[in-house]
Nucleic acid binder design. Structure first.
Lengths: 110, 110
DNA sequence: CGAATATACATAAAGAACTTAGGTATGGAG
DNA sequence: CTCCATACCTAAGTTCTTTATGTATATTCG
């Protein structure tokens, strides 16, 4: 019950899409590490969450995958599907707006 | 599958605590309206979500309730439990920090 | 060299939280 | 008198995450 990231719920899809938009081509494990690094370990993605998320996004046609052997190990790289860029940017914008509204609701405590 | 607020998940507890901290004393229906007003209807809390949330927070001892008849209708007012203020402010701070990290992850798309 | 750790993928059972949909009831507007 | 707003509540279903495994290779360290 550590629940490191109880706020994460619902935002993981969009975080992944944003990282792929920015970085072009990433694999699951890398996404977890990158997120950890960029947030000073404040947001920790678990593998049990990231892999199903990637599979879901691919099934929904938002991202593509390709396997590649690197240093003897298989990596599965993902990148955004160009034909979904509009949809992806919309989702990112919506989440950005949501966090803005959220912060305005929380602000009085500052 | 409209999922108006697919990002809400996990943050509702803390939104409620923040609103109660700010406003002192509110009832469920009012919390929904207030949230709608303050976010230009971008965040819409459903009654199916808000009431179980209030019950949960009360059960956990974070808030208190009292019923009152107003204009012929029963209202159940909630307020934060003073002995939980530290815990509540911590949760609000954590969510504020989370949204900060989240925005930094999403920012490159701007 | 053997063991532990990091890398890298995957899935399944369980739990938590939300949506959807329904139910009850009063007051005011048209 | 009917509809809508107010005001509460709960249950079934869905979705997503956590936790717990499992597989496999490369590297590091004693």
């Amino acid at each position: 019950m550590d629940a490191k990231n109880k706020f994460l719920s619902g935002t993981l899809n969009t975080i992944v899409l944003a990282l792929l938009s920015e970085n072009g081509r990433m694999y699951g494990y890398e996404i977890c590490q990158k997120t950890k690094d960029k947030t000073d370990a404040a947001i920790l993605l678990t593998e049990g969450a990231i892999y199903p998320t990637l599979h879901r996004l691919e099934k929904d046609g938002l991202i593509n995958s390709s396997k590649e052997k690197v240093n003897g190990r298989i990596r599965k790289y993902y990148s955004i599907n160009d034909s979904s860029i509009v949809e992806i940017n919309l989702q990112i914008d919506l989440l950005t707006q949501f966090t803005g509204h959220l912060r305005s609701l929380l602000k009085p405590s500052l």
